[in-house]
């Protein structure tokens, strides 16, 4: 019996993040004596959604094996958010062009990263770090003459609730299920995991290694752009520092969610557990009246701590 539980946990690494999130939620509910405990979850889900969106992309990249990582996510979010808001200019007529251009920016960013990594053979960590700074400085330059607002329809969408649950959380949970299905059942998903386990073996087995890697970075770029657009809409406009937290958070939700940092294995469900956990921790510290400084310290320590305690030493990059 004990062994069966152990194997069940081993094959479901995402359980831990949900269990931890539940514990934190109970602690919050206890400290506010139950008042608004459900509302806390709804708010946590709202923000967790933004983490989860970029997390899906980062998870695909990290699952593709050692060395693969996308550090351009904050830059892509910011430039996509600014351009989309600029075109929307607070009117519904700008919704479609804004979305198209914003997502187009994400697509272009993905292509740019692929060129750096595949054609120029630059290590992904450095290629995406450098490209991220290029995107960020484009956003800085563009922000000088743009103070645009999101289209009202998009604002309605990102803040809509269905039975008390944020609508976009439901939408992107569905997308997570789709990603999980693709990883398990599709040629693309199986290729990503196979490449992550052993790139050379995957190549010899006849898998399309380079196109698969390209798709992974493309997906990450588009998802980062989408997160940037939705976050700008939710916050009533883009901001230059809006992507700041997402560099660490995108990696944190992947790792805390049970995806192996060494690649070759992915845990899509865990993204949500980890995203909700990280958000609830912030809520809890807020409830305790802790300032921003301590919040950052605690978040950083949780991430390093979980990583250090995670089972089994794994290959480093």
């Amino acid at each position: 019996m004990r062994e069966r539980i152990a194997t069940a946990l081993e094959s479901r690494p995402w359980i831990w993040s949900f269990a931890a999130a539940l514990l934190v939620w109970i602690a919050i509910a206890a400290s506010v004596a139950g008042h608004g405990a459900m509302a806390t979850i709804a708010v946590a889900l709202q923000f967790a959604t933004f983490f989860a969106i970029v997390g899906i992309g980062q998870m695909l990249v990290i699952a593709a094996g050692p060395g693969n990582i996308d550090l351009s996510i904050p830059g892509v979010m910011t430039i996509a958010g600014y351009l989309a808001m600029g075109l929307m200019a607070g009117a519904n007529s700008g919704l479609v062009p804004g979305l198209l251009v914003g997502l187009g920016v994400g697509f272009a960013a993905g292509v740019f990263n692929i060129v750096l990594i595949d054609a120029l053979r630059i290590p992904p960590m450095i290629g995406t770090l450098a490209s991220g700074f290029v995107f960020q400085s484009m956003a800085i330059a563009y922000s000088r003459h743009s103070h645009a607002k999101p289209a009202p329809l998009l604002v309605d969408f990102v803040s809509a609730r269905l039975l008390g649950i944020p609508l976009i959380a439901l939408v992107f949970m569905a997308l997570t299920v789709l990603a999980a299905f693709l990883l398990r059942r599709s040629l693309f998903g199986r290729s990503v995991l196979a490449i992550g386990q052993n790139r050379e073996a995957a190549r010899l087995a006849g898998l399309a290694v380079r196109p698969t890697l390209a798709l992974v970075y493309l997906a990450s770029g588009i998802l980062a752009a989408l997160a940037g657009i939705l976050l700008s809409a939710y916050s009533g406009g883009a901001a230059l520092n809006m992507g700041e937290d997402y560099l660490l958070m995108s990696i944190a939700v992947v790792v805390l969610g049970g995806t192996s940092i060494a690649g070759g294995q992915a845990s899509p469900a865990g993204l949500w557990g980890a995203a909700i956990l990280l958000d609830l921790v912030v809520t809890m510290l807020n409830v305790l009246g802790v300032g921003a400084g301590l919040r950052f310290v605690v978040t950083g320590i949780i991430i390093i701590g979980v990583l250090a305690l995670a089972r089994g030493p794994e290959a480093r990059y």
């Binding site: 560099l247 660490l248 940092i261 400084g293 919040r295 310290v297 390093i304 480093r316």
Partner: peptide, 21 residues
């Protein structure tokens, strides 16, 4: 045997937080 990139990124939050404190 941790990836330095994630550990130092996590540490960056600790440094920022301490600096703000």
């Amino acid at each position: 045997r941790l990836p330095s990139i994630v550990v130092t990124l996590g540490a960056s939050f600790v440094w920022l937080g301490l600096a703000l404190l």
